[in-house]
Simulated scan of single mutants.
Amino acid sequence: MVEVVDPVRDAIVKELMLFRKQPGHPGPHRLDGLFHLIEALGEGIPERAFDELARLYEDLGRDPETPVGAFFYLCGWDVGLGTIEERRARYIAEHYSGEKTAPWRRATKGMHELATIIRDRDETDRPSVVVSIFQSGAAFQPILDFTMAHESWQPPTVIVNGEKVDLNFHVHRDPKRDERYARRFVLPQAPLDTTVEHGQQMGRVFVHWPMPVWPTWRLLAWTPEPRILTQMRTVRNRAAEVSLWVND
């Protein structure tokens, strides 16, 4: 099995570890300096991020015998205590009578599961695709802009009007953002089907990019012909379809 590389998820794991080590009962103060958790859960607001983390505790972490529950227990949720070692000792006394290192392993597994859930909610630090459509007369030109960081990736599949487009997919460092990589594809003009009637499709671009870290999608369309409409449909975070339709 190939390990997925995702620096943002790795940073969330490290911050969850720092959050867990702090004394007493959890609160918004524990998130001070934990940038990725605050961004992913609270859009930059620590209090909002803590409220979301508390909701995750209510939804997933109330049972301390589960991996996620063990993580929240060692964080001090409804437990408090001065150190993580004190919380671990109480956890062993109340919930585990076997090997003393097992609670660490259980909680670490839960921490990674929780990091995956939090990462999946984060819509900021992600690969992104901008699909641009420029219509002129009886043709349209698609332009695709791919942006990503140093995460695992797969090449996209692009289909225009039912024909697969051969892409030599590789990325270059974005000169405006050192930690990002980008690639633009200016595809050839494609014909519009001008014989179709009202409510029928004239042209279509389909982009399938099944990234391990799901991408965000945006559409930029310029259609000076007023009877042509542009529609975008996403397919569960891994693909997007842009189509042009007759509206007269």
Rank of each mutant, 00 (worst) to 15 (best):
Ala190Tyr: 11
Glu179Lys: 06
Ala102Phe: 15
Asp78Glu: 15
Phe169Leu: 10
Ser136Thr: 07
Lys109Ala: 07
Val196Asn: 13
Tyr57Asn: 04
Gly76Glu: 02
Ser128Arg: 11
Thr230His: 10
Asp166Ile: 11
Asp59Arg: 15
Leu56His: 12
Thr124Lys: 15
Gly24Lys: 08
Tyr57Gly: 01
Lys100Asp: 13
Ile228Arg: 03
Tyr181Pro: 10
Ala49Cys: 05
Glu85Gln: 13
Ser243Thr: 09
His95Val: 03
Gln22Asp: 13
Gly27Ala: 08
Arg238Met: 03
Leu16Asp: 12
Ser97His: 14
Ala138Cys: 03
Ala240Lys: 00
Arg30Val: 05
Glu85Pro: 04
Gln135Thr: 06
Asp125Met: 07
Pro7Gln: 12
Asp6Ile: 12
Ser136Met: 00
Asp59Pro: 00
Leu56Pro: 00
His95Leu: 00
Asp178Ala: 14
Lys109Cys: 04
Ala182Lys: 15
Asp59Tyr: 10
Lys176Gly: 07
Phe71Met: 05
Pro46Ala: 12
Thr66Gly: 08
Gln189Asp: 07
Gln154Glu: 13
Trp77Tyr: 13
Pro175Ser: 13
Pro175Glu: 15
His25Gly: 05
Arg30Phe: 08
Lys14Leu: 15
Trp217Asn: 07
Met232Phe: 01
Gly98Trp: 05
Tyr57Arg: 02
Ile228Trp: 06
Gly76Arg: 00
Gly82Arg: 11
Glu113Ala: 04
Glu179Gln: 14
Pro127Leu: 06
Arg48Val: 13
Val171Pro: 08
Glu94Pro: 01
Glu86Phe: 02
Ser128Ala: 14
Tyr57Lys: 04
Met202Ser: 02
Ser132Gln: 13
Val131Gln: 00
Arg88Val: 06
Val8Arg: 12
Glu39Ala: 11
Ser128Cys: 06
Leu244Pro: 00
Trp222Pro: 01
Gln135Leu: 00
Val8Lys: 05
Ala54Tyr: 12
Gly69Leu: 03
Trp77Asp: 01
His112Ile: 10
Arg177Gly: 04
Val160Trp: 05
Ile133His: 08
Asp122Ser: 14
Arg238Val: 07
Gly42Phe: 05
Gln231Ala: 03
His25Glu: 13
Ser132Gly: 14
Asp248Pro: 04
Pro226Leu: 11
Arg87Tyr: 07
Met17Thr: 12
Val2Leu: 05
